[in-house]
């Protein structure tokens, strides 16, 4: 039996193993995906007046659903509600069984796999590789404040549209 993760997956993202290959694909294509995502972010920000008219509160549930579907497929996203993918080489840190958001623990195995789940590549080894591909290694050096557990499940896309700093 596997030990519980510090930040378990929520909703339809509760699919611990099979999606993993796609997640690794995403990190391998971090550069292209990041470019797509930057474009998408611009669209989101442009949609702010429209979203404001509809009302962010009303949009929260449906948008969060779509976001979860897309991001759980691509990144095994766990909907922490304070997305940092752009600073972690598109490797979602909440898949780290310790939920670490500031870099790898000291337990990473010699083969680059996780201390807790030996069959899983450490998300931070992946993150570093992804960040190198994106040319975003410097962002890996940013210190991140502790997670706000109240935001779990909320849409990060809507936060981007509103111009809230995600983390």
């Amino acid at each position: 039996m596997r030990a519980e993760d510090a930040f378990p997956a929520r909703g339809i993202a509760r699919r611990p193993l099979p999606r993993r290959s796609l997640r690794l694909w995403s990190v391998r294509h971090a550069r292209a995906l990041a470019a797509v995502y930057r474009g998408f972010e611009r669209v989101l920000r442009g949609a702010h007046p429209l979203f404001a008219r509809i009302g962010y509160a009303r949009l929260e549930r449906p948008v969060a659903r779509v976001e979860l579907a897309v991001k759980s497929a691509l990144f095994d996203c766990r909907m922490c509600g304070q997305c940092v993918l752009s600073a972690t080489g598109l490797s979602c840190p909440m898949n780290c069984p310790k939920g670490l958001r500031n870099g790898p623990c000291g337990g990473v195995r010699d083969n680059g796999h996780c201390e807790v789940h030996p069959d899983m590549p450490c998300v931070w080894v992946q993150a570093y590789a992804g960040a190198e591909r994106m040319g975003a290694v410097a962002r890996m050096g940013e210190a991140r404040a502790p997670i706000d557990h109240r935001r779990a499940g909320l849409s990060s896309w809507l936060q981007a549209a509103r111009g809230d700093v995600a983390s």
């Binding site: 510090a6 500031n102 210190a143 404040a145 502790p146």
Partner: peptide, 9 residues
């Protein structure tokens, strides 16, 4: 496993 903070935070 709690891990509410990490070593850096």
């Amino acid at each position: 496993p709690v891990f509410d903070l990490d070593s850096i935070s």
